[in-house]
Amino acid sequence: GCFECRPPRLQNCGNRFEEIARLASETIFTVNEVEALYELFKKLSSSIIDDGLIQKEELHLALFKTPSDENLFLNRVFYLFDEKKNGVIEFDEFVHALSVFHPNAPMEEKIDFAFRLYDLRQTGFIERKEVKAMVIVILMESDITLSDDLLEAIMDRTFADADADKDDRINTEEWKDFVLRNPNLLKNMTLPYLKDLSLATVFPSFTFNTRIED
């Protein structure tokens, strides 16, 4: 951060303040909250390689507590965070994506993010075979064995509820109707923690003093 600025670093700090102010203007976060997110980003982006970028392995380490890059859902989260699609999460991408998870973020943004998460092949539809593949991964992760008949029964019930036009794929309108009727499906799209984000609460040892007013 810029808390211990010495003259040689002032130029960098100026850029940092500009970036933080810009990110605050682009997202739901205040300047202080973006600054707090920067501290979190620094921690995550240095956990394996200290290069100021979050690698997929580093996201895996944060979510699963083990370093690996092989998990379908982690891949999807990483893919959506990585706006530039260059294989790493940069700070501005991190702030943009987390903004969607803020308790006060518009419901539309959460619905859209979840849709893109589950639209594995980016066809504009959540296809039945994609959903089945995701359920199989979840069952394997949880060490649950289900017969294919039971699995198909879950799929039938889900698509009877979600797929209004019965074409074995869920479009954006059907998805919106479905999640509005089943709001618990969006529970993991909200991180209550983001509402209490400030250096004072997250990093109590810091005395925060920024030149930019919120």
Binding site: L63, L98, V135, L146, N182, N184, L185, N188
Partner: peptide, 26 residues
Amino acid sequence: VSPVTMNAFELISTSQGLNLSSLFEK
């Protein structure tokens, strides 16, 4: 809750890979 009674997306949303609150664990 038995997985058999859940809908597919309820099951999927329990994935650890989708639980970003772990990012904030100290």
